[in-house]
C-alpha cells in the first residue's frame, strides 16, 4: 500500500502534515510519539521580530469547533535560528516554516532569511484573521495577493506554499492570483473569522473580541473551497479544516488535496497522527485503494 505523496518535488512519507500554530516548533508532542511519524509539519507562524500576541482569553469552545485569537505570538527570526532550527534539523520529516508579517517588505526579508536555513518549504501566511495590521489584509483580494506573492517569490529560494483565507469573496480568484505570481502550491483553509459571547458577563469570550474558527465545524467550508480551487489551478493543493478522522483525509483528497494538514484534532487526541495513519491504512484497505495518490481529485462531479 502506498501512502507517500509528492508536493513540489518534495517527498512526504504520508499525506499528514501538522498544521501551523497547533504544533509549536515540533517539540511538544515528543513524549507522546516520535514526531517523525508525520509526513511533514508546519511551524507556528514566524515573524521577523518577536511578537507577544494578543491578551487572554485566547480560546473558546463553539459547537464542534474552537475559536482562537493567539495573534501570532512567536520568538522572532533570530531566536528561531538560535533555539528552534538546531532541533528542526534533527528531524526526519518535511519541515515547513510558516511566515507572516505586517508589510510586504517584512515578508520578503523573512522569506529570504528563512530560505537560507536548512528547512524544506515555506508557507506564506497571508490569511491570519487575528492580527490587525497585516495578515489577512494581504490575503483577501487578488490584487494584494499578486503583490505580496510576486514580491516574496523573488526572495524565497524554497518551494513556496501560499496559505489562503476562507474569509473572502471568491477563493478561486485568490488561488489563481497566487498561482500566476509564483506560488508552487496552495494550502487552505486558514480559520474562519468568528466570535463567541458570554451572556453572564455580557462580554465577548475572547479578549480580542473576534477570533478564528477551526475544527470539525469548518470542514464543509474547507472541502468546498479545496474543490473549487482544484478546479481552478494546476499547482498542488494542501487541504485542511476540521480533519479528525481517516475518512476526512480521503474526503479532502477526493476534492483535490495532494496532502492535508491537521490542526485542532491534535488538541482532541494527543496521538493524532498515530490514530489517523492507522485509520488511513485500514480505510484504504477497506476501500481497496492501493495508492493514495490515485484518489486525488477523483470526485465524481454530479
Amino acid at each position: 500500500m502506498k501512502t507517500s505523496v509528492n508536493v513540489c518535488g518534495i517527498e512526504f512519507k504520508n499525506p499528514l502534515i501538522a498544521a501551523s500554530g497547533t504544533f509549536g516548533f515540533g517539540r511538544e508532542y515528543q513524549d507522546f510519539y516520535d514526531v517523525n511519524i508525520w509526513g511533514g509539519f508546519c511551524t507556528k507562524g514566524l515573524t521577523y521580530e518577536k511578537r507577544l500576541g494578543n491578551p487572554t482569553p485566547r480560546i473558546a469552545e463553539t459547537p464542534m469547533g474552537s475559536l482562537n485569537s493567539v495573534g501570532l505570538q512567536n520568538p522572532g527570526f533570530e531566536d528561531f535560528v538560535k533555539y528552534e532550527l538546531p532541533y528542526l534539523k534533527t528531524l526526519d520529516t518535511v519541515v515547513i516554516v510558516n511566515i507572516a508579517g505586517n508589510m510586504v517588505e517584512d515578508y520578503c526579508r523573512l522569506a529570504e532569511a528563512v530560505s537560507d536555513c536548512d528547512i524544506d518549504m515555506v508557507e506564506l501566511n497571508i490569511s491570519c484573521p487575528n492580527v490587525k495590521e497585516g495578515g489577512m489584509a494581504f490575503g483577501t483580494r487578488p490584487e494584494s495577493i499578486k503583490n505580496v506573492v510576486g514580491s516574496v517569490r523573488k526572495y524565497c529560494k524554497k518551494p513556496l506554499i501560499v496559505k489562503l483565507s476562507p474569509n473572502v469573496e471568491d477563493i478561486t480568484q485568490n488561488a489563481k492570483a497566487a498561482e500566476d505570481y509564483g506560488a508552487d502550491a496552495i494550502s487552505l483553509i486558514n480559520t474562519v473569522s468568528g466570535m463567541a459571547v458570554d451572556i453572564y458577563t455580557r462580554q465577548p469570550i475572547l479578549a480580542n473580541t473576534i477570533g478564528g474558527l477551526s475544527g470539525p465545524a469548518i470542514k464543509p467550508i474547507a472541502l468546498k473551497m479545496v474543490w473549487q480551487v482544484y478546479n481552478t489551478v494546476k499547482i498542488p493543493i494542501i487541504g485542511m479544516g476540521g480533519i479528525s478522522s481517516a475518512q476526512d483525509i480521503l474526503e479532502f483528497m477526493l476534492c483535490g488535496a495532494r496532502a492535508v494538514q491537521v490542526g485542532t484534532y491534535n488538541f482532541m487526541d494527543p496521538y493524532a497522527p498515530v490514530t489517523l495513519l492507522d485509520g488511513l491504512t485500514k480505510l484504504m484497505a477497506d476501500c481497496k485503494i492501493q495508492d493514495v495518490n490515485t484518489i486525488v481529485g477523483d470526485l465524481k462531479a454530479r
Partner: peptide, 12 residues
C-alpha cells in the same frame, strides 16, 4: 483557558 495542554498552541 487551554487548547493543547502541552505547550504547542500558545493559547494559555
Amino acid at each position: 483557558r487551554m487548547g493543547c495542554g502541552v505547550g504547542a498552541c500558545l493559547v494559555c
